[in-house]
């Protein structure tokens, strides 16, 4: 197996009487495509928040590339090479799609000269290539606020990709995409991840997507990863089928 790049070890988090994480552990190796599945509201997003520094665990540690990142801010973790797209897209709503992506590229390239105009950024070509990955070249000049949620989710992913992370968390990447376009989006997305050698962890509810694109599946239940395995093993696991997928054997 290839190198270990992220490890979450025994994460604990309790707020307001809710045990959001209860000994959550996960090991992620380079170039894996890990799907996290589990019931709605079970805390899958909390797990991402813990791994990316948005929330601090009360116990347990997170390691990335061998170093302890538990206490780091989202900003510092992002700079180490961890990208993230959100369940609810986090974009600059008043700006155009182009500006959103160019700002991400400026952040990556540290191009902060006050004499450079953002709309004449040297990475403009790369920006269009990123938009092409999510199939949204036509929407480039539109203001994000005017776009439907599904498109925003894809732009959110493109923004995360723009940072060229070594590891990317995607929170329900295809939830806003119509079912017949899902595979197409996932195909180009996976190709882009392969081309960049980016490891990916994604929360997913569509078991067809999980079966087709995940190299490994982790089942989130009771505030931790309750089961792990190949898509085949997990999707045919009787207990998982009953509790997560909602299909009795």
């Amino acid at each position: 197996m290839s190198a270990l790049i992220l490890e979450a070890r025994d994460l604990e988090l309790r707020f307001g009487g809710v045990q959001a994480a209860n000994g959550a552990s996960l090991k992620v190796h380079a170039n894996e495509r890990i799907a996290i599945i589990g019931p709605n509201g079970a805390g899958k997003t909390t797990f991402i928040n813990l791994c990316t520094g948005y929330l601090k665990p009360q116990a347990g540690r997170v390691f990335f590339g061998g170093s302890d990142i538990t206490a780091l801010s989202p900003r510092a973790i992002t700079r180490l090479g961890v990208g993230r797209s959100f369940q609810i897209p986090q974009l600059f709503l008043e700006n155009t799609v182009i500006e959103n992506l160019l700002l991400a590229l400026s952040a990556r390239e540290r191009t902060w000269s006050p004499f450079l105009r953002l709309d004449r950024h040297p990475k403009t070509e790369e920006m269009w290539a990123l938009l092409d990955i999510v199939g949204l070249k036509d929407a480039g000049r539109r203001v994000v606020r005017e776009l439907p949620e599904g498109m925003r989710k894809l732009i959110d992913i493109a923004v995360a990709l723009a940072l060229e992370p070594k590891l990317i968390f995607m929170d329900e990447p295809t939830s806003g995409v119509s079912s017949h376009e899902k595979f197409q989006v996932m195909d180009t997305l996976t190709r882009a991840l392969d081309a960049r050698a980016t490891t990916a962890i994604f929360v997913e509810h569509d078991m067809d997507v999980v079966a087709r694109y995940a190299s490994r599946v982790a089942v989130w239940a009771g505030g931790r990863i309750a089961h792990e395995g190949t898509p085949d093993e997990i999707l045919n696991h009787p207990e998982v089928r009953e509790t997560v997928i909602g299909v009795g054997v």
Partner: peptide, 21 residues
């Protein structure tokens, strides 16, 4: 400039700005 747009980003979405590093 990118810095000016980052300044506006504080108003529109500081979370994303932090997640851009």
């Amino acid at each position: 400039s990118p810095g000016g747009k980052a300044l506006e980003a504080i108003k529109s979405n500081e979370t994303r700005l932090e997640y851009l590093g």
